[in-house]
Design a binder for these strands. Structure first.
Length: 749
DNA sequence: CAGTCATGAGTTTTT
DNA sequence: CTCATGACTG
């Protein structure tokens, strides 16, 4: 699949495996181009070849070509492939990066246009939450009634849609408060010389759309070609940014798959890719429908799931690959039994010689991972959780980074407030409040208040002395001049006593934290080496930007000998020889929140499609009859998605534990309970077993009717096999296939 | 001011 | 169940 032709810049670039007109459009089209790339159709290859061709054949200078991805990992992968096609010396000048990284880079250049200084910092979720919490406290808003999360969500949502506070409705009290908090939030960020993730996009978008600023014109002329990967996931702000960038020439190539749009809740708007042809009437459209990744059975299963989706860009995924093994659907008793089955499958695969990194375990929500982890650990199988808490989100790492961020950008109040009493130096909440209040009265940052206006804070003698000590320490750290980022971090650890405080704690937990801190130091060292190798100078600010924009998934693959375990969301864009997809049960996948009842079934369906299409050779799906989740045991029915897979592509199995528990003993759970709709008379046949006798006139058993079985869940009657008493029917259950069932085990659904 | 207990809430999270 | 947050107590 991966052409290894060693084309160097200027030489002709090998062509991807497409038919003639597709190749022509993909490689050479000017103007807008929409590539609808089905799962596994090799879209990365397409983008890579297009870029290579634009450079080699069309003479586009690398620094005038922008390729945008959504993850750092995808960007790195593209770089790597291009290295081989056109050579590293060309790739170095290319603009390849995520939306956020690209915007951060542009914003470092155009910072003045939006009133930021060059040293701006990027606030992550917890920083943002800290800001909102401070606003709520300052304005006396009850955090119980109006949780910070709600405001953050609303602000985030608004920004994705390019809405200012005054654009928001203000009918309900919450809406009124939201406007107020949003406004204060922006003010606080501005004062702290900080941006959030959305601002990175918005600021650059505003510059790009500006008719009055010369930077606007400059930005609009900057790139001759723009390519966007995973276009189904763009939001309104990102789309407007891209449109501004290509305004003069419309040389915009977007690649995506509306069936894989799974981030609507994060502002991604699948309508943008679906409406692309309306916005760019002259757009050429290429559909890539051949899947090169997976076996026939996997592709047909995926198709079965997605085909039932309502509105979608019509396409038929197909493959010429052999059918391969059927998709194995295993019914298990509970989540422990499920984990045991997963472990067994992994063992088996390892025995066959599959490498750990080519196996993956998926789940819908993180809460499922614990049991799976325990089973892996018990069996001595090495695994790696992808996602979850990022390394850079750990408290101790954030602490050290907060020190570094204050040194790089003293206006950042959130960072300063985080570290003012870490490690504990006797500066309590009351003192901190006083300082913060004095700072806000004087209209200066907390940092400046601490260093220059301490006497104006009205602190008691002891408190004042301690804060002065903190200020002196900061001053001496700021005076450090010729140290690289790593050395500076070491000095921070030393001067603040942070390392010592952890050592003195002398607990296993503290040791683990200490370990993370030294990992941070080695990350700084890696960065320095890398920067020097790239011919640049390592700077603290550059490092801080990187860590803000880096995710856990980016590191995946660096650990080769571990089985990765992740949520389905984290799996997008990845592929594995063997995929174990767990928890395919109603209410778990598709997920239904107990509180909200918003129906996001379509997105859940696309999520299932993404999960299935990750597998190259083998897909094993598990579901459990009961599951302990959030402390309560739930009874589970197989997911409707299982029923959407073609019968001939799937093989059903029952775990040993479950089949054991079904056999040879009284099965009270399987006997039907009387329902109101049933005209039935209960009689006792044998001791301990209760049957329900059916009225022979009942029509609820006719073909097509929905019936419910305590174990198999809801199914559809295929036909009545015997009208005896009780009658026997053939029923098709999602996830179980066709079953011959005595009607007394059924009730109407 | 800094630990300890109670209470409550609980998807997914490329950046 | 498990984590985070808030009130309470030395």
């Amino acid at each position: 699949m991966d052409s290894s032709s060693e084309g160097s810049f200027g030489r002709e670039v090998a062509e991807p495996m497409l038919n003639e007109p597709q190749t022509e459009a993909v490689l050479h089209a000017q103007g807008p181009l929409l590539v609808l790339a089905g799962a596994g159709s090799g879209k990365t290859r397409v983008i890579t070849y297009r870029v290579a061709n634009l450079l080699a054949e069309h003479g586009v200078p690398p620094y005038r070509l922008l390729a945008v991805t959504f993850t750092n990992k995808a960007a790195a992968e593209m770089r790597q492939r291009l290295d081989r096609l056109v050579g590293p010396e060309v790739v170095r000048d290319l603009w390849v990066g995520t939306f956020h990284a690209t915007c951060a880079r542009l914003l470092r250049r155009y910072h003045a246009a939006v009133g930021l200084s060059r040293d701006f910092v990027i606030y992550d979720d917890s920083d943002q939450k800290a800001v909102v919490t401070r606003i709520l406290r300052a304005s006396g808003i009850d955090e119980k009634q109006y949780p910070p999360k709600a405001f953050l969500h609303a602000i985030h949502q608004a920004k994705q849609d390019v809405l200012l506070p005054e654009d928001l409705p203000s009918r309900t009290p919450f809406e009124k408060l939201t406007r107020q908090v949003y406004e204060a939030f922006q003010e606080k960020l501005r004062a702290a010389n900080a941006v959030d993730f959305d601002d990175l996009i918005l600021h650059v978008m505003r510059i790009g759309e500006s008719r009055t600023r010369e930077e606007g014109e400059e930005l609009r002329r900057k790139f001759r070609h723009v390519l966007v990967d995973e276009f189904q996931d763009v939001n309104a702000a990102q789309y407007r940014l891209v449109r501004a960038l290509v305004e003069g020439h419309h040389n915009l190539c977007v690649v995506g798959d509306d069936d894989q749009s799974i981030y609507r809740w994060r502002g991604a708007d699948v309508r943008i890719i679906r409406g692309f042809r309306k916005d760019f009437a002259e757009a050429q459209v290429v559909k890539l429908e051949e899947n090169y990744r997976s076996t026939g059975n996997i592709v047909r299963s995926a198709l079965g799931v997605i085909r039932r989706s309502g509105e979608r860009e019509p396409k038929e995924l197909f493959t010429q690959n052999p059918n391969g093994a059927p998709v194995l659907v295993v019914a298990t008793r509970d989540e422990r039994d499920e984990a045991a089955c997963v472990v067994e499958q992994i063992r088996e695969a390892l025995r066959r010689g599959v490498e750990p990194k080519d196996i993956a375990v998926f789940y819908r929500i993180h809460a499922q991972s614990r049991v799976l982890e325990e089973a892996m650990r018990a069996e001595g199988l090495p695994y790696q959780i992808v996602g979850g808490t990022r390394f850079f989100d750990r408290a101790e790492v954030k602490d050290v980074l907060a020190y570094l961020r204050v040194l790089a950008n003293p206006s950042s109040d959130v960072d300063l407030l985080r570290i003012i009493n870490v490690p504990a130096r006797g500066i309590g909440a009351a003192t901190v409040d006083r300082i913060a209040e004095a700072a806000s009265r004087a209209g200066i940052s907390v940092h400046d208040a601490v260093l220059d206006r301490l006497d104006a804070c009205g602190l008691a003698g002891a408190a004042s002395k301690r804060v002065a000590g903190f200020a002196a320490m900061l001053r001496s750290l700021r005076a450090v001049q010729d140290a690289g980022p790593r050395e500076l971090a070491e000095r921070v650890l030393e001067a603040t006593g942070y390392a010592k405080a952890l050592k003195d704690e002398n607990t296993a937990e503290a040791d683990a934290r200490l370990e993370n801190v030294s990992e941070l130091l080695s990350s700084l060292e890696d960065y320095e080496d890398e920067a020097v190798a790239a011919g640049g100078t390592p700077t603290l600010q550059d490092y801080l930007e990187r860590v803000s924009l880096e995710s856990d998934a980016d590191k995946l693959g660096k650990e080769g000998a571990r089985v990765p375990m992740m949520t389905v969301h984290a799996a997008k864009g990845l592929e594995f020889t063997l995929v174990l997809l767990t928890g395919l049960e109603e209410d778990l996948f598709p997920y239904r929140s107990p509180s909200r009842e918003r129906d996001d079934l379509e997105e859940e369906r696309r999520l299932a499609y993404v999960a299935v299409t990750r597998a190259r050779e083998q897909l094993v799906i598990t579901h459990a009859s009961t599951r302990m989740i959030f402390g309560t045991t739930r009874y589970c029915q197989p997911s409707r998605f299982l029923g959407d897979m073609p019968e001939d592509a799937v093989e059903h199995a029952v775990s040993r534990t479950l089949s054991g528990s079904m056999e040879g003993r009284v099965r009270p759970a399987m006997f039907v309970r009387e329902t109101t709709r049933q005209v039935a008379r209960e009689t006792t046949r044998e001791a301990g077993e209760r049957y329900v006798e059916m009225d022979p006139d009942e029509t609820w058993l006719s073909a097509g009717r929905s019936v419910e079985h305590t174990r198999f869940g809801v199914g559809k009657v295929v036909r009545l096999e015997s009208a005896a008493t009780p009658p026997v029917v053939i029923v098709h259950f999602a996830g179980w296939g066709e079953k011959r069932i005595v009607a007394s085990f059924l009730k109407p659904a």
